[in-house]
Amino acid sequence: MKQSLFTILENRALTKDVFKMMLSGDTSDIRATGQFVNIRLTGKFLRRPISVCDWDEKTLTLIYKVVGEGTEQMKNMQPGEQLDILTGLGNGYDLSKSGEKPLLLGGGVGVPPLYALCKALIRKGAAPTVILGFNTRDEIFYEDEFRALGAKVLVTTVDGSHGIKGFVTDGMKDADYSFFYTCGPEPMLRAIGKAAKTRGQYSFEERMGCGFGACMGCSCKTLTGNKRICKEGPVMESEEIIW
């Protein structure tokens, strides 16, 4: 974990309520895809945990959905403004388990952490298939960005306005895969748990106090013992989850 000040380089809308923020700062403690950062906002007491979409030596990319007062405040921030951010939080995805044909399943605002994961998997020589699930055409983001990485991309929409009509699980029916990685709302994770033909890793969400393992605010029970979503998670193995 590292605490440092980041400077906003860019903050723009991808859809009506999903925003992309690029920042410059010390990213040296971000060690794995699927980790998250915790952002302090003026006038708010608790930090806001946001998953890392992508990073390099100098920049950090976050994609967030406006869901409450904190993210509303983030949306209105301008390039040049600074944010106090804790980086390097959580365990992240384990690339070594992917096999040759990993399947990445993202639902809505669960899509962002899969971007850096997809990039890393391609870099190590795997051939990922990505299924992105949204409610409707207007909510879709990052379809082209995943394609540009060289992944096979399928999009599902609940209303059928783009791609396959239905949920990500409808997209995975005919897929041939060696392992899966997913992030999204809990009902989606549950459905994947039932539909999956292989083992996989799931990223979970919970209201957090500290985000670094001190307060026990985000604990959950697993078959391998009690875990803190922020410390031993947010990524969990399919074989340890109690649905």
Binding site: K44, L46, R207, G209, C215, G217, S219
Partner: peptide, 14 residues
């Protein structure tokens, strides 16, 4: 059970 945490003005509930 969770949620165990809530934000408040100048504080929090656990």
């Amino acid at each position: 059970p969770t949620p165990r945490i809530a934000e408040c003005t100048a504080g929090m509930i656990n």
